[in-house]
Design a protein around this nucleic acid. Structure first.
Lengths: 378, 378
DNA sequence: TTGAAAGCGTTACCAA
DNA sequence: TTGGTAACGCTTTCAA
């Protein structure tokens, strides 16, 4: 925007109230637009390092040194500079600093869609941890758009590192960006090549969940949602399969395809009614499970009397709906990812690290009636 | 970081494979670190406008013109430059561009806490709309920290405009930043001075809700949560008061203080049991209401038989808990705020605008039993 | 239509 | 300890 050419030397003179009592500045002819010179400046907006240097009678290098603090500056000089800084309300330009330092002091996070409590919690944890580490957070949700890879590449150019959640962009895109040297942490998404990752445990908890359902006497199973598009759910379905095989039961041939949303669940319920209702419906997340329950009940099916339905995540609604599910430490996932990323940004080298956070089976009553009236309702 | 001083003229020569068939570049002595000259470049990382200019045999100004597209460039030149750009995988530096243009191409959003479905939805809408307008989104949650004003000021230095939600920083801070010329839109927070705002309708819906409760026969009311800290809830309580006075009933003297979270609700329920349980408990949001219900029921109180409890927002759990509430267009709030902000960033002047989005009363059964078995359960 | 060069606001090197 | 100044990577003015 404003490129005021005829700047040169004329403006910079500052009314030298040469008393050394720190007073509020009254006039300062500044370099900015204000056609009418002699305007009072106090907001600190538009004040540059040169203004400070001129007023303090030092070079801009010295001002920079004082502000960065790492290089020795004589006490009186430092004091003088700091005085002027606060008089003028000077704050270094983020842009100027970033350009000179070659870093952004910002992190990115890419998720498929912010909707749903799961992502919100993850982002919350991430933002909090990143903030404490002095980094700004740029968010990007891809919404399954075709332009997603380009959006992510663009984000990559504005940050010093980023966290990428499952189902956003392909491993190729991740690899490409990582290859350029940008630190990346994968979240809720199995490791791709030499990239760090943070995940919640999936297989063992899926086995535990399935065994619980088998204990209820359920014999025929359907699994709903996710699959290929979501590595996270693939692990879960592998766990379900393992548990069923161990028990000598027949695992479902294919997961029922469905998006991770409530409406999708009710739709699936209708399909299930046509295709034949299994004993247990294991869903990829809570929203989906709640939708399935709604759909089944609307058709007069008793849940859990005739069919058991389970979810994953343990969102708030799951508690009120009495949904049996697996709790993930959503917020903690975000926190860990932020910390892991920060390490890499600070130059930490070494082979890729993979963190796996534990989960909890939360038994409520959508999985079948329990003899002891009601098991741990939260 | 890397400030390679001895750059000057020596490097820039490019092996002039002077055939005009576009071939994949094989060697290019680049200006970057690589001590061993003659390294092949193809990732596009570290390629600057100068590299492109040199290879295309034009000035950097011309490259810039081609890329920006606004200034006429001869067709052959343009073509040549674009070829080199794609050969080298050149992408302009966001930092360099921003510094020169004096803008960030990024928006901020400040909220008190991302937890809870309400904020998540707002952010989702905001991010989506801002993204479509070509702007990155920086998020900041203040968590009620003392440093909040400083955090927000810092954010203000990294964006071209920002949205500020209620209960984050004081009006003074908002005014201060707005005075510097940074476009701001207030969200879920009543207008402060000459600043744009987007809100959901509060008073009329509170009146409607209250009247519904009165129709149920409830006569003594308590309102829980929010108040001064949250201008949004103050409006709601004003609505409740109005409705009660109109009906000749006594409004509660004070709102019961409580944070907007579930745990707070259960705590309040205990207090209510001691202080005396009213006919109806109107809560500032759904989480709080759900907590109150849980607390009351745990004490053996029948909801809605003995007490009616209502929420606000209509989050997912509200549906499964059968909570009577007021639905806000959360996502739409975010979208509108993003658009309004964008207008200002594009230089739109004029007096502050205030948008108010309509809400819906959602009657379920926490407000009292209805004669017709169950009213619009969504 | 094009090029040269100033300027955006910093940091960090080199010499004093 | 300090000042001068190149460099970061771009945009835009001014002249040609």
């Amino acid at each position: 925007m404003s490129q005021d050419r005829e700047r040169s030397d004329r403006e910079r003179e500052i009314p030298s109230r040469s008393c050394n009592r720190y007073q509020i500045p009254v006039t300062l002819i500044c370099t900015n637009d204000s056609e009418e010179a002699g305007v009072a400046v106090s907001t600190g907006e538009g004040v540059t390092i040169r203004d400070v240097a001129a007023r303090a009678g030092v070079s801009i290098a010295t001002v920079s040194r004082v502000l960065r603090g790492n290089i020795p500056v004589s006490e009186p000089t430092k004091e003088r500079v700091l005085t002027v800084v606060s008089e003028l309300g000077y704050r270094p330009s983020v842009l100027g600093r970033s350009l000179a330092e070659g870093r952004h002091a910002a992190n990115g996070i890419v998720f498929p869609d912010l909707s749903g409590p799961y992502y919100a919690e993850v982002v919350l944890g991430y933002e909090e941890a990143a903030g404490e580490l002095g980094r700004s957070v740029l968010i990007l949700s891809t919404h399954g758009r075709d332009a997603a890879p380009e959006m992510v590449r663009e984000l990559a150019r504005r940050v010093d590192g980023m966290v990428v959640l499952g189902r956003t962009v392909s491993d190729e895109v991740v690899q490409e960006i990582a290859a350029r040297g940008l630190p990346i942490v994968l979240l809720a998404r199995s490791a791709a090549g030499e990239v760090d990752s943070v995940n919640a445990e999936n297989v063992a908890s899926a086995i535990r969940l399935t065994e619980h359902l088998i204990d209820h006497g359920h014999r025929t199973f359907a699994v709903v949602g996710g699959a290929e598009s979501s590595p996270d759910t693939m692990e879960r379905w592998a766990g379900v399969r393992t548990a069923l095989l161990r028990a000598g039961l027949t695992p479902p041939a294919e997961p029922v395809p469905a998006g991770l949303r409530e409406e999708e669940g009710t739709r699936v319920a209708e399909d299930l009614l046509v295709a034949g209702v299994p004993d247990a419906v294991v869903c990829a997340n809570d929203e989906l499970a709640l939708g399935v329950i709604t759909g089944l009940r609307a058709a007069g099916i008793d849940v859990p009397g005739q069919v058991a339905v389970t979810g994953w995540d343990d969102v708030m609604a799951a508690r009120y709906a009495g949904l049996t599910t697996v709790r993930q430490p959503m917020r903690e996932l975000g926190v860990r990812a932020a910390r892991m990323l920060d390490l890499r940004i600070r130059g930490d080298a070494g082979p890729a690290r993979h963190e796996v956070l534990p989960t909890n089976l939360v038994v409520r009553n959508s999985c079948g009636r329990h003899e002891p009236p009601d098991l741990d309702r939260r």
